[in-house]
Design a protein around this nucleic acid. Structure first.
Lengths: 195, 195, 195, 195
DNA sequence: GATGAATGAGTTTTCATTCAT
DNA sequence: TATGAATGAAAACTCATTCAT
């Protein structure tokens, strides 16, 4: 069994296993045994790549956070018109949320115990995504297409509103996807001050 | 010791202990021993009032959800003008969030393991608050003061945006409270279509 | 199985199991599973009585230390003549060593990691026994029967010399018991300055 | 990296690393990773030089035992007078103890599990030192300077008494070094029957 | 009703040792 | 010779839950 594999592959397998299990059962209900078994490695190997279970969670947070932000940015940049950019952003966010929806817990989990030693602690997971929206609001306003008095605060609020894309947030009888995304587009437009 | 006390008082003590500890240390890090000790009762007594630890979490969710919704509703009803109602709602939500902010985990926790037997599962915690906003949007629109095409979807989004009130959500360098609440008021007005 | 028993009995069972196993296999090689299994209790129960495995070791140390000192003192007090007292002390120590010899590791183990928080740490295990010898030297000298310039230092050295009673200390071809105890008696007499 | 070095140098590096780490943290708390890292070699290399961690401990025991004995012997031989020899021996032992004091655990550790296959097991660590004292007592007695009835037993006892040189053995309020070494000299003289 | 002693499966983590390269 | 990735058994410790009193 002791077959050596590239470190990146091992790490990726561990991240993938963590992602799948955290999504399916939640972080607390997932044991390291589950993770290593699913990744097809020994328990000891895990600790060659991550100092603790908590660090796997953090690594996943970062991974998703970047992916989320990157996709929103790409979507925004694919359009020329400011309003279209906004719409594209919402669309991308919605898609992302859907694909990652089972990782809600991982992404938005609060770090309860601030690590001793780490002065500032990690940036909150959605920060990268928020910056994309903020920049869009700011640039659009500068270009005269939007009218956002406080792009940063508004971006934080708008980003937070995307929590609604998560199934668990809405009631079982809440609005369906189509209605929700339409409403989101309208909300973002209005937030941007598009007339 | 074996002094009988009113059931409601016992239950309340347990809820209060759970609230304090979950808020301070997180759900996973709080043991039943912690809870019963803080409540000043025996461990066995807990199970006379709640079937499991999970059910205490659920009971707290419901408690907060109702309190949250009730305060928003009261704030809205204290004003006559539609826009003022909306602003009051935002203000109340912000205050509530601050008071309960350490209970973020309790309120917005996803129920991962759907209880076998319970067909539908419990309503998501923020549902009650969402209804308050929805009704406000709908009534305001009917009265001609607002212009909300889909009050339900918009309410879900707006309610979700309140996550931004949580300190942990914004970055350490994110907007401060004053800016945030102003931005929130503006966002809600625009969402409502107030011109 | 859940039969409640007096706390003292439980504690004693745990101490007895620890003593037997530490003696037979050494501290490091004895697991908590071993201990609780031998004591006929569950693993969780152990932690109701001792905060950690280390604390069981410490409790045993104290137990033996007291027993050891008490037996030496009793032996010394059973005689009137000063030299006879010394001899009796040596005899008692020898017997004790033999009975407890497998617990050498427990008794004389060095605490490597000084507990953070505990300012001074526990007294070394043989301290109580040393005091018995010291008092004997001092009193005998005061009575004119002995001539010990520094009773404390001499007692520490004499007490340490008893390590030789341990089988593991002497070589396989070292002196046998009879010779050793005679030599010990002579050594103690000479140490005391008995002419 | 894969640079071949003289075997003796490798072995010495491993012994030195073990010595430093065992002394600082104790045997149990020192991992092979620690040792090989400190020695600057790979983990696999360790097993080319020692069959197991336990054997490193044993090798260190032997090393110290010999060093200890050699220094005592050298000290004794540097003097002509019998009493001076005894005093020099005590002085050398004291010095040695101080330098090696953190290795107490290594030197005096009992081998609990008798190796299957090894018929007799290794000689106890202090045996070599004991022989030095024994020979001194015997030769001095033969020369008419000492009067030791049983040199072997007395040597074993005297050697054991040196445990008192270890800080951990005496209480925190035990005798200081000067008093202790004076008392030791006196004890050894009296043990030798010097008048 | 109320207690809290007792349980034991489950958790994270460590580490001596192996072996393909 | 030398490496270090990989193993997996075992360790200490936790805690939700039960139940005899």
């Amino acid at each position: 069994m002791t077959r050596t594999k590239p470190a990146e592959q091992r790490r990726a397998a561990l991240l993938a296993a963590g992602r799948a299990l955290f999504g399916a059962k939640g972080i607390a209900a997932t044991s390291l045994d589950d993770i290593t078994q699913r990744a097809g490695v020994s328990k000891g190997l895990f600790y060659l790549y991550f100092p603790s279970k908590e660090d796997l969670v953090l690594a996943l947070q970062e991974q998703f956070s970047h992916e989320f932000a990157a996709r929103m940015r790409a979507a925004a940049e694919s359009r020329a018109d400011w309003t279209a950019r906004l719409d594209a952003c919402v669309g991308a966010a919605f898609e992302c949320y859907r694909e990652l929806h089972d990782l809600h817990e991982v992404m938005f989990r609060h770090a309860h115990a601030v690590r001793p030693g780490s002065e500032a602690g990690p940036e909150p997971a959605p920060a990268a995504a928020t910056r994309v929206i903020r920049d869009l609001f700011a640039a659009g306003t500068a270009a005269g297409a939007f009218d956002v008095a406080d792009p940063e605060s508004t971006a934080v609020l708008c980003c937070a509103s995307m929590h609604a894309f998560d199934q668990g947030f809405r009631g079982r009888r809440g609005p369906d996807d189509v209605r929700l995304i339409q409403a989101a587009r309208q909300l973002f437009r209005r937030a941007a001050g598009v007339t």
